[in-house]
C-alpha cells in the first residue's frame, strides 16, 4: 500500500522514457542532425545527460568542404541553409569527436550519408563495430552523383536500395530520415520500412529559395537551400501524422519545434520521439526547456507515462 504522499510523488514524476528500435531514451527529446555539431559545441549550455540522445552532424566517407558562403539566410519564421553537408569525415569523427561523446551517459546516434550507393555502404561498415555508437540515422536527402544527381530519398526504388545495403552492413538500430520534397511521403516511408529500417525520422528541410530584390541575386551562394524552423512545423506535423499511419515502425518527428507544446503536437499525431533543430540556435538551452515542459504537461494532465500520448490524436 502506498500512502498519500508516495502516491502524490509517483503522480508528480511521470515516465518520460521511450524506446526507439531498441535504443533506450531517458526522454523523447534529441537534437536534429546538423544543428548540434558533434555534441561538444553545446556542452557548456546544456546538460547532455538531460536529453534522450545525441545526434551528430551528417558524416560522409571523406571529409567534405560543403558549399560556398553565404550559406544561411533568415526568412519569415525560419531559415534557409545550404551548408552542403560539410563534415570531418567518418574516420576523423571516430578519432577526434567520439572520445568526448564516450564520456557522456547518453546514447549517440550517428547521422551519415553518401554520394554514391557504395559510399553509404562503406560508412555503415565503418560504424558497425564502434561500441559507442548506439544507432545510426541514414540521411537519404542527398543527390546520387553516379545517377546524375537524383536524390536517393525522392525515388522510392533508390531509397529502398540504399536502405537494404546499409541494413546488410550494420546490425545497429537503423533510423532512416526522410525528405519532405516528394509528392507522397508515405510511399518512401513504406519503401524504407520494407527494406529493413527500424525507425523513420521526418522531416528533413524543405527546399526553398530567397532573392535579394535589389541585387537580384539569390541570398544563398548555392541559389537554393533547405528551409527549417517554425515556418515548416505544420507541414512536418502533417507528414509525421501520415507516416505514422502508414508504417508500423516508430517515427521521430522533426520540424520547427521551439517549445514543449510543439513537441507534444508531434507525439499526439504519432511520433515516439522528437528532434529539435533550429531552436538550438535561438536558445542553446531549448531542449532542456522542452523536456521540462513535456514533464510539466504530463503532470498537469494527470498522465503517468509519456507513451500514453503517442498517437493519441482524437479525430
Amino acid at each position: 500500500m502506498m500512502n498519500c504522499r508516495e502516491e502524490k510523488n509517483k503522480r508528480s514524476a511521470p515516465n518520460l522514457a521511450v524506446d526507439i528500435a531498441g535504443i533506450h531514451l531517458r526522454n523523447p527529446v534529441m537534437p536534429a542532425s546538423g544543428t548540434f555539431g558533434y555534441g561538444e559545441e553545446y556542452a557548456t549550455y546544456l546538460d547532455l545527460e538531460g536529453i534522450g540522445a545525441i545526434i551528430t552532424k551528417g558524416l560522409s566517407l571523406k571529409p567534405k568542404a560543403g558549399n560556398p558562403t553565404p550559406r544561411i539566410a533568415e526568412t519569415i519564421s525560419g531559415m534557409l541553409n545550404a551548408i552542403g553537408l560539410q563534415n570531418v569525415g567518418v574516420d576523423a569523427f571516430i578519432k577526434y569527436k567520439l572520445p568526448f561523446l564516450r564520456e557522456i551517459n547518453t546514447p549517440v546516434i550517428v547521422n551519415f550519408f553518401g554520394n554514391t550507393l557504395e559510399e553509404y555502404g562503406e560508412v555503415a561498415e565503418r560504424l558497425s563495430d564502434i561500441p559507442e555508437v548506439a544507432g545510426v540515422e541514414l540521411n537519404i536527402s542527398c543527390p546520387n552523383v553516379k545517377k546524375g544527381g537524383i536524390v536517393f530519398g525522392t525515388d522510392p526504388r533508390a531509397a529502398s536500395e540504399v536502405v537494404a545495403l546499409v541494413r546488410k552492413n550494420i546490425s545497429k538500430p537503423l533510423i532512416v530520415k526522410l525528405t519532405p520534397n516528394v509528392t507522397d511521403i508515405t510511399v518512401t516511408a513504406r519503401a524504407v520500412e520494407d527494406a529493413g529500417a527500424d525507425a523513420i525520422s521526418c522531416i528533413n528541410t524543405l527546399t526553398g529559395m530567397a532573392v535579394d530584390v535589389r541585387t537580384r541575386r539569390p541570398r544563398l551562394a548555392n541559389t537554393t537551400g533547405g528551409l527549417s524552423g517554425p515556418a515548416i512545423r505544420p507541414i512536418a506535423v502533417r507528414m509525421v501524422h501520415q507516416v505514422a499511419q502508414a508504417v508500423k515502425i516508430p517515427v521521430i518527428g522533426v520540424g520547427g519545434i521551439m517549445r514543449a507544446m510543439d513537441a507534444l503536437e508531434f507525439l499526439i499525431v504519432g511520433a515516439t520521439a522528437v528532434q529539435v533543430g533550429t531552436a538550438n540556435f535561438v536558445d542553446p538551452g531549448a531542449m532542456a526547456g522542452i523536456v521540462a515542459g513535456i514533464e510539466e504537461f504530463c503532470i498537469e494532465e494527470g498522465i503517468s507515462d509519456v507513451r500514453e500520448l503517442i498517437g493519441s490524436l482524437e479525430v
Binding site: G37, Y42, R71, I72, N280
Partner: peptide
C-alpha cells in the same frame, strides 16, 4: 560573417583557411 548559432554547430559562418582545397 552571417551566423546562426555562434558556437560552431551550424557551419554557416566558415571562411577559407590557408591551404584550403576540396580534398
Amino acid at each position: 560573417a552571417l551566423m546562426a548559432c555562434g558556437v560552431g554547430a551550424c557551419l554557416g559562418c566558415v571562411v577559407k583557411g590557408r591551404g584550403h582545397s576540396e580534398e
